[in-house]
Design a protein around this nucleic acid. Structure first.
Length: 563
DNA sequence: TAAATTGGCGCC
DNA sequence: AAAGGGCGCCAATTTA
């Protein structure tokens, strides 16, 4: 059975195609057909995976024509992951570059990424000059990539990683196409309520102007609350030494300007980041369509380009409203990161704690923190984030006693980072080389020695430098955050398959949370599909494990009603 | 004048 | 409660 075909666009809307054999090489003649979309459509039943240079290049045409492929393999996404695994992150990842490396020719740099334009198709959906290669070269690059999977530390996991990253590309493009249902009228009503009406001429809205006046009044002189330097100066004059105007620092001060200042900052943020101009720029025809970038962060978390889609403030979420007769199924993975830590470290105690659907922090605190859930959560997150002070650190000892392998797992990752070594997620996504290391950073920039005291007052002989410790915190977090992203990607892929036969659409994804927009009658099935996708992702990623991956789901009409 | 950096805060 | 990981975005400020 040949279920795998390579595909590339040809001139005039046509396509190059070739069936691929088990050796990843053409199993038949290369075909040239006049219409790419029809070439794909005609083969939908038989082709289970399309191998192509770039999903961003092909998916818009296919989606616009209503063609939904089952699976794909994105050569340039895979190239980035393979380069990273090989410790060569930073080398160009285009197919043209990969081909040049194969031929030992001059390697072209990657074309620059453009920022997304509001309301338009995503910038990814424009052809990227200089990244393309002839079809036969593309086939060579693909075959070589398959060989490189075999050379990975865990070949099967690496195959899973590139496959799921490719699935993520499909989900991302489809979510962009579907869009998050967004009621501009509700958004405007929220803004009016929070910020007051706008003044003609584009100045700050009434509520902000009032708060700015209150701040000035409290200081007895004109102070602009949006200028940190101005605010610091004003507090200094008033006899309060502040190093910054960060909220937690201001909250320590007993001064009448503090309350209106904090309120101003909060509302100012809403106004500038998700106010009227955001609405104008990003919402069209009742949909918010951000451009999602799978693998946008080194750890594998997604980013978005334009619209700040992963930072939608809670107070604005009331504007996300399902269509008439439809619902939003909002699903949150419960305590995703500690569960993933249990699965990857195989710590017996933590696996046992994570082997229930119940609130993990509650179970943890009952076992090891005498019922104090907050303490338990703090200790665990502190271990994962590399906390250096505070209660989390204090409780680290208790955590280490109960869950030695879990703590060792992140400690090992931290040590690797401090020593300049690379770490990997469970599926093999690899941390970037430390800045300035051998060939990973900018050539010629001397690296601070890890053994040199850095004058931060905490240096102890034998300890790593400030930079090395920062690097250790990064790699410590990387293995957990990144492995959680591995799981989330598999979950998304499974959910996409499960909802393929429904009218339901995936419309939002944010690290450990997914929103599906569906007819009311489908909501219950969608909720089940999400839970099953979570468990399936756990089994596929981590094999046999007692760790459970439950979701909290809510079927709502408004996003803000979900929690 | 434009690009890069900084401070601050939103989300996970 | 304290301020430790990952991002994007905005406005202001600094640098080229």
């Amino acid at each position: 059975m040949i279920g795998r075909w390579a595909l590339a666009p040809a001139e005039g809307g046509g396509a190059w195609l070739a069936p691929l054999g088990a050796d990843a090489r053409p199993a038949g003649p290369v075909l040239r057909e006049p219409d790419l979309v029809e070439a794909v459509r005609a083969r939908l039943p038989e082709v289970t995976r399309w191998v192509w240079r770039s999903s961003a290049e092909l998916l818009p045409r296919l989606l616009a024509a209503g063609v939904r492929v089952e699976r794909c393999y994105d050569i340039e996404a895979a190239e980035l992951l393979l380069l990273g695994h090989e410790g060569r992150l930073g080398e160009p990842r285009s197919a043209a570059a990969a081909w040049a490396r194969l031929r030992h020719g001059p390697v072209p740099p990657d074309p620059p990424q453009r920022a997304a334009e509001p309301g338009s198709q995503s910038s990814l959906f424009e052809p990227r000059a200089g990244a393309d290669v002839p079809f036969d070269a593309l086939l060579e690059v693909y075959a070589e990539q398959q060989r490189r999977h075999g050379a990975a530390e865990h070949p099967d996991r690496m195959r899973l990683l590139t496959a799921s990253e490719s699935a993520g590309m499909l989900v991302a493009a489809e979510m962009h196409g579907a869009g998050l249902p967004w009621r501009a009228d509700v958004h405007r009503a929220l803004l009016d309520e929070l910020l007051g009406e706008r003044y003609a001429g584009g100045g700050e809205p009434r509520r902000l102007a009032e708060l700015a006046d209150q701040v000035s009044e409290a200081f007895g002189r004109r102070v602009r609350p949006d200028l940190p330097a101005d605010v610091v100066k004003a507090f200094t004059r008033a006899g309060f030494q502040v190093r910054s105007t960060r909220r937690w620092e201001l909250e320590e001060i007993d001064h009448p300007a503090v309350a209106p200042l904090i309120e101003y900052k909060k509302l100012y943020r809403i106004w500038t980041a998700h106010g009227w101009s955001w609405l104008q720029d990003w919402v069209r025809d009742g949909r918010f369509r951000p451009e999602y970038l799978p693998g946008g962060t080194v750890s594998g978390r997604w980013t978005t380009n334009g619209g700040g889609a992963l930072q939608i403030p809670r107070v604005i979420r009331g504007a996300v409203v399902a269509d008439e007769g439809w619902r939003l199924v909002v699903a949150d993975a419960d305590q995703m990161e500690p569960r993933v830590l249990a699965a990857i470290s195989r710590d017996r105690g933590l696996m046992e704690v994570a082997g229930h659907d119940d609130d993990l922090y509650k179970v943890l605190s009952d076992r090891a923190f005498s019922g104090d859930r907050a303490q338990a959560k703090l200790a665990l997150l502190g271990a994962v984030y590399g906390q250096t002070s505070g209660d989390g650190l204090k409780n680290l000892a208790a955590l280490r006693r109960r869950f030695p392998r879990a703590v060792e797992y992140v400690d090992d990752a931290a040590r690797a980072g401090e020593e300049g070594r690379l770490v990997r997620t469970w599926l093999g996504r690899t941390s970037p080389p430390a800045a300035g290391s051998q060939d990973g950073g900018e050539a010629g920039i001397p690296q601070e020695s890890d053994e040199v005291p850095s004058g931060d007052g905490e240096f102890t002989p034998g300890y790593a430098s400030t930079n090395a410790r920062a690097r250790g915190r990064f790699t410590r977090n990387f293995v957990v955050q990144g492995s959680a992203a591995d799981w989330a990607l598999l979950m998304l892929a499974a959910l996409r398959s499960a909802t393929a036969g429904m009218r339901a659409e995936l419309v939002f994804f944010q690290h450990d949370e997914v929103i599906v927009h569906c007819p009311r009658e489908e909501a219950a099935d969608v909720a089940v599909a999400i839970r099953e996708a979570g468990e399936l992702a756990g089994r596929i990623a981590f094999g046999e494990t007692p760790v459970r991956f439950p979701f909290t789901t809510a079927t709502v009409e408004r996003y803000s009603d979900a929690k």
